[in-house]
Design a protein around this nucleic acid. Structure first.
Lengths: 334, 334
DNA sequence: GCCGGTCGTCGAAGCGCTTCGACAGTCTCA
DNA sequence: TGAGACTGTCGAAGCGCTTCGACGACCGGC
């Protein structure tokens, strides 16, 4: 079972066939008789053979590893990122690939390094900014890549994301259906907008357009993440616009603070103020009261990103943009 | 710059030396004259050479990749996990290694696969349980490994972690110094204790022993993570023991709910109830009021785990257990 | 009964790198 | 001044795998 590492030659000898036959059994690239295949597979499992990844990558020019590039920046909600990451790993395994984790601190050079050294076959990038330093590099790389999120110039790239504009609009429509006329959006911290992170802006645009389309009175504000700042923002908001009755919150870290602040200000949810959040389901469900929300379909996005990158690896054409439609889950807060 | 992949042979030709000379320049395993070294390095950078990872791993029996095994389980605080993960990646890069991300859903078999296929040289495992299914496997593996956390039987393994018992004790000592006599620990959700996760139990033990040592009246309770459950727990606690004046919270997700609940129950922090948390610094700083806390030194733990695993790779002896001492940061909540 | 095709298998040529032994050329010291 | 020890470099032998071309064996069709 254990001990020295088993090679394909030992498997071949044990099964009484040629090395190449074992290889073809494993890859399925040539027809092998059922009998031979069985003998080979038996030998593989009795010897506990695992192909040497390096040798395989050298000979086949495929490492069966994809890179997951995950910058960790201020204001990003880490659990959501993590769910993307695990979804990518799980999906990649389904295609018989492993995942190499790259962070930002090496800079774009790290991406070039793993690509040029054939450590990875393809790349999935998360948390893409509008003017992302990594994007120009991707264009000159031979390895296929997929972005989770949209940069300012997505032409020629493959991008996947939740349709945040539609999500923002969906929240507005829901509040409008419930009869709310004056509403507000509490978004990401200022720094996130300033950085030009796409999803924050797109939600705001969707919100603003939908507000106009429904003839509502709507205001979009950034929102910091400490309780005190949230409290200040909300109490000012309620003072300035006493008739405000609906809130869209697109900031996972602030969601609970928003509810706490409303509680402290004596506003009941949903009787006085209805709240819709754009956040992961577990955050929405754990809140008090549970929040009506559009979830960020992290698993779905991660899976889709991997599916696309695998298609590109096979040389197939894929759409430039994939926008996943938002789903609204109605709970107690509206 | 770009285009077809550059090989060591092309570098050698360009620099007018033998392939092996280039290799020795890169590895430093034989002395090379300053002049030759410079010529070779020049050629490398003008040609944009990056060694082929697969070829290197095949020839040298080292992939320069370590696995980070990161099960994602209920009740774990994801941002903390993520900080471990990025610390591991950063530290690994410093040793010229990359990090392969493994999740739990493949089970222990995934560990065996990446080890047996020589995809990775070594393993770092996070979020270790007392009776972890992965541990027996590690013992039979040829590849060195380091655990972040402690299983029930750590003999023969290398483990690193914050000294949670000391952290629990430190919090108790701090409250005792401030004159509090009746205190309580709000810990992890029940499921985490049931699973036998080491750090939760060790904190509780440290708390309990310190309570006895200081002659205090102390109670340790598990703590769920929804606002309503936290509220229930706390209001019952305050009803049962009206003289309670100090709280240790070891549950990142519940920290803000605890403060919210105290606020709602009309207890001021720190005047009526002092609160010490064991949680990341950013959570403590963002709370209202900012919390006196023992932080989880994720970066330090991750870095130490990598350092240890690299030492083991070099065949050096390392200590079985590394416990990092807790540091208490005093803020407004006590 | 022979020819062209398929099927199943084999042997060998690399893939790009590391490392070992060899070997000129230099230096050191008796 | 020559033996011995270094230094700096080279050539070649693999590392374990994939893949290409080759080649019997067998098939059906005429």
């Amino acid at each position: 079972m254990s001990g020295r590492t088993v090679t394909i030659a030992e498997v071949a000898r044990h099964a009484g066939v040629a090395v190449s036959t074992v290889s073809y059994v494993l890859s399925g690239k040539r027809t092998i008789s059922a009998d031979t295949r069985r003998r080979v597979l038996d030998s593989i499992s009795t010897l506990g053979y695992h192909p040497h990844a390096g040798a395989r990558s050298l000979a086949s020019k495929r490492s069966n590893v994809i890179a997951l590039v995950l910058p960790l920046r201020a204001g990003m909600h880490v659990p959501v990122l993590m769910r993307f990451a695990t979804a990518v790993v799980t999906a990649a395994r389904r295609f018989d690939h492993d995942v190499l984790l790259l962070t930002a601190d090496e800079g774009p050079e790290g991406i070039r390094r793993v690509a040029a050294s054939a450590l990875v076959d393809a790349l999935v990038l998360m948390d893409v900014e509008l003017h992302d330093r990594r994007v120009p590099l991707l264009r000159e790389l031979a390895e296929p890549s997929v972005l989770i999120g949209f940069p300012a110039e997505p032409a020629g790239l493959t991008c996947v994301d939740l349709d945040f504009a539609a999500a923002g609009a969906r929240c507005v429509a829901h509040l409008a259906e419930r009869g709310h006329r004056r509403i507000a959006l509490l978004g990401a911290p200022v720094v996130v907008y300033d950085r030009g992170t796409g999803f924050a802006r797109r939600t705001r645009e969707g919100f603003t357009e939908a507000v106009a389309a429904h003839g509502l009175d709507g205001l979009a504000l950034p929102c910091e993440e400490t309780f005190d700042e949230v409290h200040t923002t909300i109490s000012r908001l309620l003072t300035d616009r006493p008739a405000l009755s609906g809130l869209v919150v697109h900031n996972e870290s602030a969601v609970n603070h928003v509810l706490g602040a409303l509680r402290q200000l004596g506003r009941r949810v949903p009787e006085d103020v209805a709240v819709v959040a754009i956040c992961p389901d577990d955050v929405a469900e754990r809140a008090s009261p549970p929040l009506t929300s559009v979830l960020i379909p992290a698993e779905e996005v991660g899976r889709e990103a991997v599916r696309l990158v695998m298609q590109k690896l096979e040389g197939r054409e894929v759409p430039d943009a994939t926008l996943l439609p938002p789903h609204l889950a109605i709970r107690a807060s509206t």
